[in-house]
């Protein structure tokens, strides 16, 4: 997207001076995060290798190495929880990103309709999970609106067990999460789309490009950097979000909708086994860390290469 740099001798000193100043721009963030965000991480990692129960939270933590991880793996359900998590993240990310981009393209042009729908989307996105979760729990219930409509239309013979069949429940909860993510992704995609110079579209139109070609050859390349970061943010969201599961199914039936973040929450704050819960959280963090490495590398490759 940008022209390559041609470092001349005179520019070099300016370049290095500039670079140093630009690095200084990052300093406040580093200081602030070091003060308030690093300590919790250290504590989380320490807890994950210690035996921390309700009785010794405030006092000495006994180092137990990988025992918490082993205890997690020893539970028969843990493999299923990891599979649930990956499925959940895959659904939320795919639908959240494609849906977000589609909505952003649909609403990119200013107008009363776009404004109304965008306002509606942001309004709904900003509602607390307990509200959105409760709404969907009702809409998806046996007597709920969706089943009623489907029954009235004759599309189904009996109510779909959206939230209490172990094969469907995870899908339902993931879809609702994707539904919540779409407004956010759409808003960010839209900000990036409306930053595309209007001349680009005008030139394309003069060349007789169709709307679809415009999207394919102008919009999508222009939002690539944004979509990369949204991809990462959505995956991370999928890996740490549990509010909807908490409200809609509480991980059930049985453990059919239990994902890693929900399991970690339950272990730490319902069973008060802080060591075990931290270990679960660390496992999720490490799974995402792999993604973080891939992201930062691909960012570098894309931007330098």
């Amino acid at each position: 997207m940008r022209g390559g740099r041609t470092p001349g001798t005179a520019r070099l000193s300016y370049e290095s001076r500039k670079r140093r100043t630009q690095l200084l721009f990052v300093a406040p963030a580093v200081v602030f995060l070091a003060a308030f965000a690093v300590f919790p991480i250290i504590q989380l990692f320490r807890m994950s290798v210690s035996d921390v129960r309700v009785s010794n939270l405030g006092s000495d933590w006994q180092f137990v190495g990988l025992e918490n991880v082993v205890r997690n793996l020893g539970q028969g359900a843990f493999g299923g929880v990891v599979v649930n998590t990956l499925l959940f993240v895959a659904i939320v990310t795919t639908i959240g990103l494609i849906g977000g981009l589609a909505v952003a393209i649909l609403l990119a042009k200013s107008g009363r309709w776009s404004a109304t729908i965008l306002a509606l989307l942001v309004f709904v996105w900003a509602l607390p999970p307990v509200v959105n979760g409760s709404v969907w729990k009702f809409l998806l219930g046996t007597q709920g609106l969706i089943n009623s409509v489907l029954l009235d239309l004759g599309l189904i013979d009996s109510a779909v067990p959206f939230l209490f069949d172990d094969r469907i429940a995870l899908l339902s909860v993931a879809m609702v999460n994707a539904w919540v993510v779409i407004p956010f992704n759409a808003l960010v995609f839209r900000a990036s789309i409306i930053s595309i110079p209007a001349e680009a579209f005008e030139a394309a139109r003069v060349d007789g490009a169709s709307r679809w070609q415009e999207i394919r050859f102008i919009t999508i390349p222009a939002v690539r950097p944004t979509s990369l970061v949204l991809f990462v943010l959505t995956v991370v969201y999928g890996f740490r979000s549990f509010d909807f599961i908490y409200v809609m199914t509480f991980g059930g039936p049985g453990t059919a909708t239990t994902t890693l973040p929900f399991l970690g929450y339950v272990q730490a704050f319902i069973r008060f086994d802080f060591g075990l819960g931290s270990a679960t959280a660390v496992i999720a963090v490490l799974m995402v860390a792999v993604l973080a490495v891939i992201y930062s590398r691909s960012v570098r490759r894309e931007e330098i290469g």
């Binding site: 009785s55 172990d166 059930g252 039936p253 453990t255 069973r271």
Partner: peptide, 23 residues
């Protein structure tokens, strides 16, 4: 006392799986 939270949660999960028809 130290097992109460675990016992409640795990029995609750089994109860749920029985009603849900998974087990």
């Amino acid at each position: 006392a130290e097992a109460v939270a675990d016992q409640q949660l795990e029995v609750g999960q089994i109860w749920s799986a029985v009603i849900g028809g998974q087990l």
